[in-house]
Simulated assay, not measured.
Amino acid sequence: MRRVVGVAALLLLAGCSTGDSPGGSAPPTDPPKGIQVEVVADGLTHPWEVGFLPDGRMLVTERPGRLTLVDKGRKTQVEADFGDVVARGEGGLMGLLVHPDFASTKRFTTCFNTANDIRLVTWELDGTEARRVKDPLRAGFPANPSGRHSGCRLSLGPDGSLLVGTGDTARASIPQDLNSFGGKVLKLDLATGEGGVLTYGHRNVQGVAVRKDGLIMSAEHGPDVDDEVNVIKPGGNYGWDPSKGGTEGGYDEDVPMTDLERFPDAVPAVWSSGRPTEAICDAVFLDGAEWGDLDGALAVTALKGAKVLFFTVTAEGGVHSVSVPPELDGTHGRLRGAALGPDKALYVTTSNGTDDKVLRVTRG
């Protein structure tokens, strides 16, 4: 593993206070009206990420190690060599990012577990076949043999960089170890894979969302308390340390998600679930007049909670309120992926293990 670069120069920390309430640390509001949900693809297995091609077709990663092309509801399995993908527990074929210059390059990047690590690979799509062109783009991310806390959500940064949210692989020392890429948000060059740690001290980052003004927010799993939504601040320590400063040999999950006693300068969450956790997952900002008063809201899926939460976010990144539409509250099982389509609709994937679906969510 090459050493992480540039962390000392990134220590610009800030935070917001949190509290506990039935809506987590922000007040719940009335459910939004007019939410409509339709199934656009089914028969999938743990679809992890949706990426849109310029012509509106979707690429969907499936955790067992399959890539599916969806065109107006018709599914075609992409022929690609995923022979080194190891799907075990929470790990397998996970994040996907369609490159912004896909129209000319036909390139996209995936993240997956192998027998030895978690890695990024860049592909080129030719019809319904994909070949590796950067293998790997970056390798050596830590992995747990069980697949636990694999993380690996990919997003395009406001400057065109590749943002990667990773998990700590349930190893106590990794979140605070700046020489490890586990329990971090990474900022890498999309073409070369060069780069390093943007933020650290995370448990298991499941969503990284970028607002059109450049604000970056993440969604993160807590243990049995305190899922978190965070504003990503370069160089920030987010305070997860199950090693207790290296004094604990095991993985002590009784420590706070953001340990402000051990790390007084840690970045507090802008929203915390309190108890119980929702197992929040992917996150994306809604954008478009079609959404009415939800225009600009942060949509976050939940696995255990089996819902979508809409967060009203201030200009600075504070969470003002939370709402949950009944149409997406326990109606489709576990919800994982979230992406905004070129039609401004929200696309959500289920993660139940059998006959999983891609849902199209609009507001009438």
Rank of each mutant, 00 (worst) to 15 (best):
G147M: 04
A191W: 10
T362G: 03
V164H: 05
G196R: 00
D55R: 00
L260K: 14
T45C: 13
G288L: 03
E194H: 13
R203N: 09
K212N: 15
L53Q: 04
D343C: 09
L298N: 09
S146V: 08
T76M: 12
D227M: 01
S243G: 02
Q206M: 13
T18G: 14
W48P: 11
L303W: 01
D356N: 08
C281L: 14
V60D: 03
S146C: 01
G292Q: 10
A130P: 09
G92V: 11
E38C: 08
G305L: 05
H202Y: 00
S323H: 12
A279L: 10
F310P: 09
R360E: 13
G160I: 05
S104Y: 00
K187M: 10
G147S: 03
K212F: 12
G288K: 03
V313D: 05
A41V: 09
K304C: 07
W48H: 12
Q36L: 14
G235K: 02
T247H: 07
F108C: 09
V85W: 05
V60E: 03
G201R: 01
M94F: 13
G333R: 07
V208G: 09
D126W: 08
D20M: 12
D282G: 12
G341P: 10
K357P: 00
V78K: 10
A219L: 07
S243Q: 04
R57Q: 15
F52E: 14
G157Y: 08
A289P: 11
G207R: 06
G83I: 11
P242I: 02
D287Y: 12
D355C: 07
S243I: 02
D293L: 07
V361C: 09
A139P: 04
R334C: 03
T109K: 09
A289E: 15
D81N: 12
G214I: 07
D295T: 03
D84M: 03
Y251D: 09
R88K: 15
G6C: 02
S17P: 11
V5I: 15
D356L: 07
S104G: 06
V324T: 15
S180N: 08
L162C: 06
S161Y: 08
D189A: 00
A299E: 10
G292L: 03
S155F: 11
R334N: 06
L163R: 05
T331S: 13
G151P: 11
P32W: 08
G207F: 12
G34L: 04
I232C: 04
G51H: 05
L53W: 00
T277A: 11
K184Q: 04
V70M: 10
P31S: 07
D177K: 00
A87E: 07
